[in-house]
């Protein structure tokens, strides 16, 4: 769980860096972004990594379902009055829910961008690369789509707010000093990922 989660987190960073190209001035962005997408989809190493990534998502999800079933089994009857949640953060208890939001989003995300790019008919840009850029731009013109995206990212943000430090704990990092550092880094990471991913749709929505 921890390893897959961290691997996914690493992917988030790279994916975000790539996507920041969308924020460049229009012409340049279009050219670069489409080129970048093309590179990614044709490079065998990247391809391999992509498969690892899919597998990771799958593994992470299976693990998540497993954990949830285990918890269900270990819990007894439900409490008539249940205030156990006063002792922990809601997002720490709702990792499955948040994960499901992320998962649902991933499905949509794949359907809207990844599937058309891979298997669909996309127009070419001036350099002969598939024009993913325009697809993205058009998609984010829709307010509902931006909102959906924002909700998903917030879900991811909270998932990371707990997930990041939790992953290190699950790996056995127990020194109090490192744990303090990791906790702060985790918060910073979750916040910056959320902001990072949120800037893009809003930027596009308001600027184009």
């Amino acid at each position: 769980m921890a390893l897959t989660g961290l691997f996914l987190s690493l992917f988030l960073v790279i994916h975000l860096l790539g996507n920041f190209q969308l924020l460049l001035p229009e012409e340049q962005a279009k050219e670069q972004y489409n080129l970048y997408s093309n590179l990614l989809s044709n490079n065998p190493i990247i391809k391999l990594i992509a498969y690892v990534l899919y597998a990771t998502i799958l593994l992470h999800t299976i693990d998540a379902i497993n954990l949830t079933i285990k918890a269900k089994k270990a819990n007894g009857l439900s409490y008539v009055k249940d205030n156990r949640n006063r002792a922990s953060k809601w997002y720490a208890r709702q990792m499955m829910l948040l994960g499901t939001v992320v998962f649902a989003f991933l499905v949509i995300h794949f359907k809207d961008f990844w599937y058309p790019y891979k298997f669909g008919e996309l127009p070419m840009d001036d350099n002969g690369n598939k024009d993913l850029y325009t697809l993205v731009m058009i998609s984010f013109q829709e307010l509902w789509y931006v909102i959906l995206y924002a909700v998903a990212i917030l879900g991811l943000g909270f998932h990371l707010l707990h997930g990041f430090f939790s992953a290190f704990r699950s790996l056995g990092v127990y020194h109090p000093k490192y744990n303090r550092i990791i906790k702060s880094v985790g918060v910073a990471f979750a916040v910056s990922m959320s902001i990072g991913y949120l800037i893009i749709p809003f930027y596009i929505y308001f600027n184009f």
């Binding site: 954990l67 002792a87 720490a92 056995g172 990092v173 127990y174 020194h175």
Partner: peptide
């Protein structure tokens, strides 16, 4: 058939002896 820890840290809050959740990480390390 005890469940699996996901680091919600609720246990330390209710623990009468305030045992640190870091002992869990230490267990995993070991």
């Amino acid at each position: 058939s005890f469940g699996h820890c996901t680091n919600t840290e609720a246990c330390q809050v209710e623990c009468p002896q305030d045992i640190s959740v870091l002992t869990i990480a230490e267990m995993i390390y070991e």
